[in-house]
Amino acid sequence: MNDGSPLIDRAVRGEPEALERLVASQRRAAFRVARAVLGEPDAAEDIAQDTVVRLTAALPGFTGDTELDRWVYRVTLNLCRDHLRRRKRRARDIPIDRAEAVPELMTESLPERAVDLERAGAAVAEAMAALSSEQREILRLRFVAGLPYADIARVTSTPQGTIASRVFRALKRLGQILDPRHLEVLE
């Protein structure tokens, strides 16, 4: 029954139709973001599914569309980054031509996982070392110090637009080095 109140309110109240519509629309939104970030429709589908599963659990806490939209967007991005990190670790351990055959969720024991994470950290450290000193510095300010772009601009006496370009270029370079498709060149 549609009583005219926002979709999210009706979904929170447990109206099946509203819940279904809300989940479908947010699933589409999550899929678009994930496909843009990953470029893999299958993985994007999985992440969109994971996102809406989390959404249904968290739904009672939302009060408005904007808040929910932002939440879905950020959860999707976080899941995409987790996926990329897993993909990177898999690619380091498995021949490139077999990487896609590995199940999405690997059943690692805790010590294996610790070693895995350590290796991943070492890979990032290696990749960082391959960047220019300017790129390293700007990524450290952004990701280690956690500074907003405006603060980085002030600290380095550089226009904020220039900072964004430099961070984006540095991330692309880091991505080139870390991307599994480039690892065979590195190893």
Binding site: V37, L38, G39, G121, L139, R140, G146, L171, G175, D179
Partner: peptide, 15 residues
Amino acid sequence: LRLAAMGYAGAEPMR
């Protein structure tokens, strides 16, 4: 964008 996202995924845990 995908390359930058991969870089982001690598850089983020540094914090």
